[in-house]
Amino acid sequence: MEAQAIFDTLKGKFGDAVVELQGEGFSPAFAVVAPAAVKEVSRFLKEDPDLSFDSLMCLSGVDYKDKFAVAYHLHSLKHRHAIGLKAMLPRENPSLPTVDDVWPAANFQEREAFDLFGIGFEGSKDLRRILLPEDWEGHPLRKDYKYPDSYHGIKV
């Protein structure tokens, strides 16, 4: 299925929650959705027999300087098509529902987005820092992150 057709199906089902299709210059194309609708859209994308996106390829946090985003790359092993899903978040308290009950592969990647960006995932079964030490301060991949001078007495 082409990206435009998938977008039209989503728009037909979810209406205003599906905001726009970022197609030009984006490969694969991204369907931007409202953060609150991410879980329902994901479940629909996985369970609908024509779409059946059963494989979450990649879940990443992004810091566009004025806002955050979480980008999902989805792939279907049955139909061999791919689409991207993006949810834009504000810079203060970015948070959106988790998808780890739709795709269990999301858990570690959500923890990584939380660790490195500070994006919260509501309803996640396990949201802790994963790559950095437990008592690290700050979220390094943010664009305004300042490197600390030292950590536990050792120069950074």
Binding site: M57, C58, S60, V62, H73, P104, A105, F108, Q109
Partner: peptide
Amino acid sequence: FRLKIRTGSFVTMNL
């Protein structure tokens, strides 16, 4: 601007 690397081993550790 942003570079995210999704590797096989990281996602395998989920399981």
